[in-house]
Simulated scan of single mutants.
Amino acid sequence: MPDFKTITVEETPYLFQEATCSMDPADIGTTMGKIFQSVWAFIQKNRIETSGKVLAVYYTYNPETMTFRAGFSVSPDAANKGEAPIQFDRTPAGKVVYFQHKGAYSTLRDSYGEMMSWMEKERLTMGAPAWEVYLNDPATTPEDALLTDVYVSLS
């Protein structure tokens, strides 16, 4: 079980593209991969410097579909560099629940379930957004060694 804790975070500026797909892990992986490629191509084309974080941000929760923003952290001066469909935003600063997930992305939902039980015991209420920062490359890292930092806003 992950080590859940409440921490305070600073905002993270990022460029992203939003997408919606089914909750099927294969569909999520394919859709996210395409979006990451699209945002990365935009960043390279426009010579925008990244801050090194690859992330996905979630504002809505639906059992049928998943809508997310996939992108890369950038410096705050990239705020005016988005161009449809690529946009700029910031993850919020403030108190969040944090945990690190180790393993396949398809098992992240198990860690979220454990987090929800922990939050209930701690009498914490989930807010929006939640975001994941992917710490290594799934193309070169074995599934069981993948690391994902997860941040969930509190309301």
Rank of each mutant, 00 (worst) to 15 (best):
A41G: 09
S22H: 04
D77P: 03
T148I: 04
T30G: 05
S155K: 12
G113P: 01
E18R: 15
M115D: 02
A41S: 10
V152L: 14
M119L: 09
S22R: 09
T30H: 14
M1H: 10
S155H: 10
S38F: 12
T60W: 10
T6A: 05
E132P: 04
D149Y: 03
S73A: 06
K81C: 07
E49C: 03
P63E: 04
D149G: 00
E18H: 06
A26S: 12
K53S: 10
L55I: 09
C21R: 05
C21P: 09
T31N: 07
L55D: 01
K81I: 00
L147P: 07
E122C: 00
E143Y: 08
M119I: 05
L154M: 08
I7Q: 14
S73M: 02
A145Y: 04
T148S: 01
A145V: 01
K53I: 03
F99A: 08
P76G: 01
P129L: 06
A79V: 08
A128L: 13
M32K: 04
Y105T: 05
L147E: 12
S73V: 05
S106C: 11
P63K: 06
T31C: 14
A26V: 12
A70L: 00
E11H: 11
E120P: 08
T67V: 07
M119D: 01
F88H: 04
V152F: 05
S155E: 11
G82M: 06
P25S: 07
R109M: 15
M23L: 10
N80T: 13
L146H: 04
G94L: 07
F72M: 08
L154I: 05
V133W: 07
T65N: 13
R90L: 06
E83Y: 00
K5W: 08
P142E: 11
L108I: 14
D149I: 06
S22G: 15
E120G: 10
T141N: 01
T60P: 06
F68V: 12
F42D: 13
I28A: 02
E132I: 02
Y134F: 12
Y61L: 07
L146G: 01
F72Y: 14
S111G: 05
T91P: 04
T6G: 01
T20D: 03
M119G: 07
W118P: 08
P63N: 02
Y134D: 07
V74K: 00
R109T: 15
I35A: 12
G94S: 06
I28P: 06
S153C: 14
R123F: 13
D27F: 08
E122F: 08
I7C: 13
T30L: 13
E132A: 07
C21V: 09
I43N: 06
E49R: 10
A139G: 03
Y134G: 02
M23T: 15
P142I: 08
A130F: 00
I35Q: 11
Y112C: 11
H101K: 08
Y14P: 06
T12V: 15
